[in-house]
Amino acid sequence: MTDQTNSTAVDADATNIGDREVMIEVAGVDKFFGDFQALKGIDMLVGQQEVVVVIGPSGSGKSTLIRCINRLEKHDRGRIVVDGIELSDDVRNIQEIRRETGMVFQSFNLFPHLTILDNITLAPRQVRRIPKAEAEAKAMELLERVKIPDQARKFPGQLSGGQQQRVAIARSLAMNPKVLLFDEPTSALDPEMIKEVLDTMKDLASEGMTMICVTHEMGFAREVADRVLFMADGQVVEVGTPEHFFTNPQEERTRLFLSQIL
């Protein structure tokens, strides 16, 4: 199984990031829910400005993995290091890492009692202590970037699903994160709205944001991902570039999964 290029070989080694700098390091991570082991010895590196797409059947642990990165779930063994900061029980560490990571949820989780503008400016004002005028200017900029500046004064309940998710992306960008984590961002959307959100994500990728996306959108993975990770039963089964991953999967499991969804 030799290749000419050395960094695009298809195998289960998720730690090969070529010549990029390390942004996120996951080493030997186990996660248990009671007796059920959701993550089994995950070793993974994510490089700067890299777009990693994680796919896999439900229950494979992919959401759990990214939720461990910003401590929405607590890992039981192993190490997680984000931008040089190691994730520990210390609250200050956790807060620091959360400032550097942004997350976009499947169910948007916008704050329904605040306007769109307030949704976006809440964290910058309260956490980074940015004055109101400055925060709102930045927020309007971000809303332009996701192409819905006219919705600024409305409430989340008045927006469509696709618009809400784009606001959620803008909200997570407002904190100037180094990494964006996406947890199935389009799974709760009607088909006609998926495209607008994926287009936003593609723009972000092309602007050089480091992204980890858990998704079922294979088209997105093929176009934008630098690496595709396939997880099943709490383990990384196969890793590769989109070209190799989708055209020539090595593992039986990968082939089975791809045949079911493609």
């Binding site: 910003n70 929405l72 997350m103 989780n109 009692h113």
Partner: peptide, 24 residues
């Protein structure tokens, strides 16, 4: 999800209660 979004935005516990949880 509201608490999770607040945590992901690095809001402190007090801020989470005051701005997100208690109003709702």
């Amino acid at each position: 999800g509201q608490s999770e979004a607040s945590n992901a935005l690095a809001l402190s516990g007090f801020q989470r209660y005051r701005f997100v949880v208690l109003p709702q």
